[in-house]
Design a protein around this nucleic acid. Structure first.
Lengths: 232, 232
DNA sequence: GGCACACATTGATACACATCAATCGCCTCT
DNA sequence: AGAGGCGATTGATGTGTATCAATGTGTGCC
């Protein structure tokens, strides 16, 4: 139906317009970076935990960071995968609402909250940037809620893969064999599925000729048409 | 487990601190209201549709407004129910990402976007309010993603009912027989279930003595202990 | 090289939820 | 009061996904 076909499967794309507060001037950016420090993490490292006081905001520089919420320690919902240019906990007051962990080796720029607040207070336009960033994050959350609540496993995976590819494209990365650095468990916890269902569904898509599964990568062959039919 | 028991089942509560931009002064508030107009809607009326240009922002004054995303016209995901004091599309640029419809009779204050932007541009502190509002909305979205992806029907319903009650309490409403103005279909589309599953699960909870189902209302009897076990 | 270990995959089975189909209750309209 | 209609409820059945279990596959380490 025309009225609904406009729906972008992945508004998250809009949240990564090309870098950390991309509309800031170069001088501003340098000053901002100088307020914080470069912190490297290794795979599975936890950057912060839900419930902990939120003392800093973070910008991913390299690698992938998983944002998740846990309960009972066994159930986990990864709400997003942050890529270079993405900012974490930019407006969090008090305590973290979520946790974050490095999906692989990652580098993050960490800026103490009070320093960032001070920086922003002198520059009114920064707040506008933040609002725009948060608006994109909210739109993205809406998409994900739709996926989680109203899509079946196959659709979830197709949409996830195409969105992931689009984000990497926007970062100028090579995507022909699409890099998939996160584990099957991570994907499952992101899509509200189990590891086994993710494997099986990917295998089914491969048998159908829609994708080709490689170690650490997935080649997207026919997902365009599949996605089109799914999202019609 | 202690580390995760902190998790509020419904951070959305934080998004309704008691009114439209509650930290504004009374004078500001009057001026802001004067920029817009009171618009009444009747049940099922559509306030705006995803994809349409976002020309105004809205504040619910009376009733309940469902925010939803559709696809293919048959699948719908209600991302939230807005109550008096909630603001809709406050930072939306360009086009609406979601649709909104009155769940019952509702009254909404609608302010043209450019007038609101002008109002805010003279008052830097308004932007801070908006950021806080959006941060709460994002936290709430995280909760809902967890519910959609990682909870079973019974848990979804218990969490939904207790959150709904908490929000009404915060508005000073009577909640002993908890008013549930939305239809079973609305609840289903909010929780990622079907109407039948919602009915059956509610019936099961009633048989267990956790709730009592009344026309248009549900009395919460033992959901505290149930919720506690669910959220442990 | 070969062992260990984590991750990925595949199979068999169970179950939660969806689907299809009545029925019931309630409200509105004439 | 009766007819119509819509939402809610309940039942019978189907199916997508979870669960349990086993095997394969890589990858690092000694």
């Amino acid at each position: 139906m025309a009225a609904s076909s406009f729906a972008a499967p992945c508004a998250n794309a809009a949240a990564q317009p090309g870098g950390f507060l991309s509309h800031l001037g170069a001088a501003d950016l340098r000053q901002l970076m100088a307020l914080g420090e470069r912190v490297p993490y290794t795979s599975q490292d936890v950057l912060f935990t839900q419930g902990a006081p939120a003392g800093k905001c973070l910008s991913v520089v390299e690698g992938v960071v998983g944002i998740y919420r846990t309960e009972c320690d066994n159930r986990r919902q990864i709400t997003s995968f942050a890529l270079p240019g993405d900012i974490l906990e930019i407006a969090t007051q008090g305590h973290h609402e979520v946790s974050a962990a490095a999906i692989g080796p990652a580098v993050v720029w960490e800026i103490p909250r009070e320093k960032f607040a001070q920086f922003a207070s002198h520059r009114p336009y920064v707040l506008n940037e933040i609002v725009a960033l948060m608006a994109a994050e909210i739109a993205d959350a809406h998409d994900k809620m739709f996926s989680l609540g109203r899509r079946v496993a196959e659709e979830k995976l197709i949409v996830f893969l195409t969105c992931w590819r689009d984000r990497l494209v926007r970062l100028g990365r090579a995507v022909d064999p699409l890099p998939v650095p996160m584990s099957r468990r991570d994907i499952a916890d992101h899509l509200g599925l189990t590891v086994e269902t993710v494997c099986r569904t990917l295998a089914k898509l491969e048998r159908r000729g829609a994708i080709e599964i490689l170690p650490g990568r997935i080649r997207l062959l026919d997902t365009e048409t599949v996605a089109a039919s799914v999202l019609a």
